[in-house]
Write a protein that binds this DNA or RNA. Structure first.
Length: 233
DNA sequence: ATCCCGAGGG
DNA sequence: CCCTCTGGAT
């Protein structure tokens, strides 16, 4: 049938209804990185790769106390920066990356964070995901952040079949109203972390079950109801 | 063992 | 497409 664009045997879940339900279930969904300026969010997001936001929030106060802006960070000593970033993992790469990012901000943007997707992505160490996080959460410009959760849920919901994040972003943009983009991604991430897990999703505890073309597909978590109770935060 | 809201390079 | 960079929590 033509409504089955998912290869899942059922039509895609209606995006606005999905977002409304997730809004109700996760009213506190938001950016969980602590920041006060676009610069701080940019740095925190770069640091968040393969680490929890909680851990990033544990190092950024010290980081921004020692190096409050791009000028200081660009001039930071590598070893000193590495020590502060050590708990995050990838600390050598992240220290190098931050210094390069700070230098590029100074040289190319006078120390300001550009409020523009293409300009952000051109900065070293800034990919599309980071750029969209900064746009959406520091500048209020709608952005779709396709991380591992958003990509997986978009595929399960039948919004996209793409593994490639840029293509998935295009597909999500086609079904979700622009003004919802930023917050809908936070909700999808919350839902992905708590219910729609990568392995054995808790379909039995999912408020989207009746809408989801992937409901019951593959192995699901039999203790779904309990899993929801002991979820973090 | 496996998982964390990734990016750059081969 | 794959691999690497890395540590801490569970």
């Amino acid at each position: 049938m033509s409504s089955d664009r998912t290869g899942l045997g059922r039509p895609p879940a209606p995006a606005v209804e999905v977002d409304d339900r997730l809004t109700e279930q996760w009213p506190d969904a938001r950016c969980e990185l602590d920041f006060t300026t676009p610069f701080e969010l940019l740095v925190a997001t770069v640091l968040s790769a393969q680490t929890t936001d909680v851990r990033v929030n544990q190092v950024t106060p010290e980081l921004f106390r020692r190096w409050p802006g791009p000028a200081g960070l660009a001039a930071a000593r590598q070893e000193e920066l590495e020590q502060v970033l050590r708990p995050l993992g990838f600390f050598r790469a992240k220290a190098t990356s931050l210094r390069g990012l700070a230098a590029a901000l100074l040289e190319e943007h006078g120390g300001d964070v550009p409020a523009d997707l293409d300009a952000l992505v051109r900065l070293p160490g800034v990919g599309r995901k980071t750029a969209n996080v900064v746009l959406g959460n520091a500048f209020g410009i709608p952005g779709i952040t396709v991380d591992t959760h958003v990509g997986r849920l978009a595929r399960r919901l039948g919004w996209s079949t793409e593994k490639d994040a840029v293509k998935a972003e295009r597909d999500i943009a086609a079904v979700l109203p622009r003004e919802r983009w930023t917050m809908a991604c936070h909700r999808l991430i919350f839902h992905g972390r708590r219910v729609c897990h990568s392995r054995k999703p808790a379909c039995g505890a999912c408020v989207l079950a009746d809408l989801c073309p992937s409901y019951g597909v593959g192995e699901t978590d039999p203790e779904a109801a309990e899993a929801l109770v002991k979820l973090p935060e």
